[in-house]
Design a protein around this nucleic acid. Structure first.
Length: 443
DNA sequence: TCTGGGGTCCTAGGACCC
DNA sequence: TCTGGGGTCCTAGGACCC
């Protein structure tokens, strides 16, 4: 048998803000998505006020002000650092664990006697709170899907004090029968409708369906979910993350883009960010796509989206190669007369950087390029993102995402933003890649 | 004025082959 | 006579996750 715990940080982004400023404790707090678009994390107090997940910020801005809700732009530098801190603490409790997402980890607890599980989890929870300031909930069961389910109940029902152990529990049936089918991990909105129409209403109903019906009506993914509800593990703990298959960098703009000049600068900027992620993953890409679109919410004649792709003759992780090709694509696909809202850079067909092959026509010194990229990354890592950047990325970046209400902890993490002088971007200046680096802080 | 940003996996259907 | 049958590969789109 396997014993699996799911440790989930409560209201994670809000809890991070609170750990940086304890005065936020007990008050309603929310955190916004990128570009201050919508609500992505809420404290319990905010939930009680009826503030919904994913709600557009502009729609409830006044309401939040009236109710004295503290609002923060998202600050992923802070959240990542907190996440690492919690992960390090978790390693003290099991050496078989999976960091599933920024705020959730699965732990194998086979080394704990079943009757000790609850005490063990309570201790884990207390230690994490004490050392990192982050409150967590813990669910324990035979499979990941059941641990998820236990966790959701632990989080909601106060009497469990944040820990629910359903491992070999006589209460499992009751827990399953009180969990609506759409709350089961792996059952999304669409499948929930199909299940409800077939009168499968709860996790228990789903567990008790026939295999043949599931396979006929759904697929092997749903079958695994059903097996997991029955206590048969189908989703193993993945101790090392599977190799990346793609890297994407995508953002909506703070100010809409209308000119090709600005678009080329934004594409250069985004491509540089994607290339950084690529190198961080230790990969090189064979395939590059550039995608741009207007807002989805415009009338159909003002709406436009387009994309262009390119096979690279040799896989690369080199920022200036990728920028050059991305600009080539951009010049091919850009159309005047639209207000662009978002751009995405997608890198696929990844190979390990160590295995990349040189193009037959490569005339540059490849080792020198590699050293250059390493130096670039290490300087930006030490002195802050975008300390060094390509001229093509532009200095002013009027399209940058809005982040109007960063906490003071947030400002500390992104000092280079506040130091950058703002000047109007001259329309006559055409971005020129491959010219070298600029230094925006003193530039 | 204003609506997140990533990822993965599966299936269906077409093209092509023997 | 009659309208095989299986296999692979690719792509677009759907569905799900946090």
């Amino acid at each position: 048998m396997t014993i699996i715990a799911l440790v989930d940080c409560n209201n994670f982004f809000v809890s991070c803000e609170r750990s940086a400023d304890p005065a936020l404790e007990g008050r309603p707090v929310v955190v916004l998505s990128n570009n201050d678009g919508c609500i992505i994390s809420r404290s319990d107090e905010a939930k009680q006020l009826g503030i919904r997940m994913g709600e557009p910020y502009f729609k409830i801005r006044e309401q939040l002000k009236q109710k004295q809700v503290r609002v923060f732009s998202s600050n992923f530098a802070l959240y990542s650092a907190k996440s690492v801190q919690v992960m390090e603490l978790l390693k003290q409790f099991s050496n078989i664990l999976e960091f599933y997402s920024i705020d959730e980890s699965f732990l194998n607890l086979n080394h704990i006697p079943p009757r000790m599980l609850r005490d063990f989890a309570m201790e884990m929870k207390a230690k994490i709170k004490q050392q990192s300031g982050i409150p967590v909930s813990i669910g324990i069961a035979e499979t990941k899907t059941l641990a998820k389910l236990a966790n959701a109940i632990a989080k909601k029902a106060k009497r469990f004090e944040g820990v629910l152990n359903l491992y070999q529990s006589p209460h499992l049936d009751l827990a399953l029968s009180r969990t609506p089918v759409e709350k089961v991990w792996g059952v999304g909105r669409r499948n929930a409708i199909a299940l409800r129409n077939a009168n499968v209403l709860t996790a228990r109903d789903l567990r008790d369906t026939k295999d043949s019906w599931i396979l006929r009506r759904f697929n092997v993914v749903m079958m695994k979910t059903v097996m997991e509800l029955r206590g048969t593990p189908c989703l193993p703990i993945q101790q090392s993350p599977p190799e990346r298959k793609s890297v994407m960098y995508s953002r909506s703009f703070g100010t809409l883009i209308e000119t090709q000049n600005h678009m080329e600068a934004a594409v250069s900027d985004f491509t540089a960010r994607a290339a950084e992620k690529l190198r961080e993953a230790g990969m090189a890409a064979h395939y590059l796509s550039v995608y741009m679109r207007t807002s989805k919410y415009l009338s159909s004649d003002a709406r436009y989206s387009t994309s262009g792709e390119l096979w690279l003759p040799a896989a690369t992780d080199c920022t200036h190669d990728l920028i050059r090709e991305a600009l080539g694509i951009t010049r091919r696909i850009f159309r005047e007369g639209f207000q662009y809202y978002k751009v995405a850079i997608l890198l696929t067909e990844l190979v390990p950087a160590s295995a990349k092959q040189m193009s037959l026509f490569e005339t540059r010194d490849v080792n020198q390029l590699q050293t250059l990229m390493q130096t670039l990354d290490s300087i930006n890592h030490t002195f802050g993102a975008r300390t060094l950047q390509y001229a093509a990325e532009g200095l002013q970046k009027p399209w940058s995402s809005k982040k109007e209400i960063l906490s003071s902890a947030g400002m500390a993490a992104t000092t280079e933003m506040s130091k950058t002088k703002t000047q109007p971007l001259s329309k006559t200046v055409r971005p020129r890649p491959l010219l070298g680096f600029v230094h925006p802080v003193h530039g």
